[in-house]
Design a protein around this nucleic acid. Sequence first.
DNA 1: GCGCTGGCGTACCGTGCGGTACGGTTAGAG
DNA 2: CTCTAACCGTACCGCACGGTACGCCAGCGC
Lengths: 215, 215
Amino acid sequence: MALAIKVNEETFTPRQQAVLTAALDLLVENGDGLTMTAVARRASCSKETLYKWFGDRDGLLTATVQWQAAKVRMPFVDRSHLNVKALRISLEAFARDLLTTIIGEVSITLNRTAITHAAQEKDSLGTIVLENGPLAIRRRLKPILEAARDARLLRFPSSEDAYRTFFGLVVRDVQIRLLLGDKALTQSNAEANIEDDVKVATDQFLALYGTKAAN
Amino acid sequence: MALAIKVNEETFTPRQQAVLTAALDLLVENGDGLTMTAVARRASCSKETLYKWFGDRDGLLTATVQWQAAKVRMPFVDRSHLNVKALRISLEAFARDLLTTIIGEVSITLNRTAITHAAQEKDSLGTIVLENGPLAIRRRLKPILEAARDARLLRFPSSEDAYRTFFGLVVRDVQIRLLLGDKALTQSNAEANIEDDVKVATDQFLALYGTKAAN
DNA sequence: GCGCTGGCGTACCGTGCGGTACGGTTAGAG
DNA sequence: CTCTAACCGTACCGCACGGTACGCCAGCGC
């Protein structure tokens, strides 16, 4: 019931946001240790209020994920005058944003939660994360790519494929390894290399899809 | 206690393998519906036997994942005479294997289970899946890449980076979307495009890292 | 036949957690 | 001041599940 996906900006009162923050903190620091009692204690509110506001546990979880996922910032790209330099800067901005987001503890937690949720015929959280993660990037990136194609800077048969290749070049195996808890890939370690990785990925993407004009 | 990672080939009796099969089936068809009672009923054995054989729930889970993950087949590649054609075939074999594995329901379930597990300061399952998934591919692919470099067919500064780029080009956003339960990307849909994707990814990889001799 | 061992089925226990009920307290409206 | 409504804290219920105990039935050595 309370699982309907609310795309509209559900405005939460400050008190409710405090509750959601508490829930998110618990989620991050304790994995799935999100018990209603724990949230109530952390947020200094009563369980009854939680149920009144969010319906049930899934409602609280959904609200938390939804509220947090919507916060993912997105680089603004000036699409009006596209040249080689501007395109490269835009692509690097997207790559940097994607990487820093994915590496963040909040993102890891949200993805893990959604995946766990998806393992039980419940796909609402997965849809939310998907919608605010990869698909949001795609929505923002595709117009840029197509504009660049129109400007003869890029060449590709399908902007969908181009986007997905970009995603692959940037993310590689970082996300799955972090989700699986690979200790050989600590955040600090991954974080240090972001700038290099961003540059390499952008170069590779341009090498694959750039026209002569783009080099 | 029972969580120690057993790298050696723990031989299970046929009866025990039947139990593990039942557990895996339950895991696949019902997500985390893996209750000890359900496994016992499905495998027609007693809970007491389960506890005697596997220690506790985590032990059963670990044994199941370990046992199944070790089954991931790996393409054999003849490293003796490497030429352009052989290299391409090898890379395509790896890509095809990686994609078919990742798309499979068993792999999705195992990864979801391990990720859920990793969300609770338990990384043993994640380590197992990682070791038998991406890292296994890496172990097998790196020598090929290095041999190709020695044969002047490929050029890269670091075989690690080359491997990870290959992984990204092949997997792109398929795995994370499947893990999140993206319904727009059903297995059948993804399965139909495997051959095309394999070819494209290999072409792209060779375009990025191949020497002139490789084209 | 007789006892012993291994494993099946089931009943049982304890606990943790989702969800509810209720009394007490604050804050604002009139 | 009083009434009301929102909300806190806490006690409580029910259930599901992990884990254990026990009764029973093979099969097998002697």
